[in-house]
Design a protein around this nucleic acid. Structure first.
Lengths: 115, 115
DNA sequence: CAGCATCCCAAACGATACTG
DNA sequence: CAGTATCGTTTGGGATGCTG
């Protein structure tokens, strides 16, 4: 983001960037997405992967992720019914964002711990 | 984030990614950062660039950004004193994150508006 | 197992007024 | 200009218990 960017270009970035963080916000959203990146999971599996989360919050966060088309909930028709959560293509498109956040998160921890 | 990643690798990503969004969270943080990417700015300039923000919120967000070493506040010694905010190298290191968030934010808006 | 309902506390945010 | 103080509202989130 050097001076290659005009003021107008930068101004135009604010809204999309703000939108993005807004969607990803919530204490557990990224954790859930990262889990579902590895494999489809059921509700109880997710609570095991993310031990501190409560049922209430998992339920809420899953709904919001679904609303934003980042994950999908499927019910197997046959008894016993299985409820499974999986990441959508749109969710997968967060790949680069997650990678960059990860890199920067590590860097930031170092930076902060040094002072 | 395909199956190149083991479950352990993905588990290890959760904390850094969560750290990163935590730091960037707050309704105006990225907006401020993007503004300061273009040029150093004074308090009142920032409120002009980001019309909806209140003095209180700008003040709060600036402090948090400074605590996290993303921006710097400098006071010119000569009268009249000038208080200026500028982005730090660490703040600039968010470049890739911002770029990816921007790209994804645009994509997301399209995705959502289609349904 | 897969949640939802309720209650409650803390943090985020906004509006307004005021100060050096 | 560059903020701070105070107050009220809204949202986020934890604890617990209940349901199909």
């Amino acid at each position: 983001m050097e001076k290659l960017y005009t003021k107008e270009t930068l101004r135009a970035m604010i809204q999309p960037v703000t939108d993005a963080v807004y969607v990803l916000n919530g204490k557990w959203k990224l954790a859930i997405l990262i889990c579902l990146t590895f494999e489809n999971m059921r509700f109880r599996q997710l609570t095991n992967e993310i031990p501190q989360i409560t049922d209430r919050m998992l339920s809420k966060e899953l709904k919001e992720l679904e609303t934003n088309l980042l994950i999908r909930r499927t019910v197997s028709p046959a008894a016993p019914k299985r409820f499974e959560y999986s990441i959508t293509d749109h969710g997968k498109s967060l790949h680069n964002v997650v990678i960059e956040l990860h890199k920067w998160g590590l860097k930031h921890r170092e930076e902060i711990s040094q002072r």
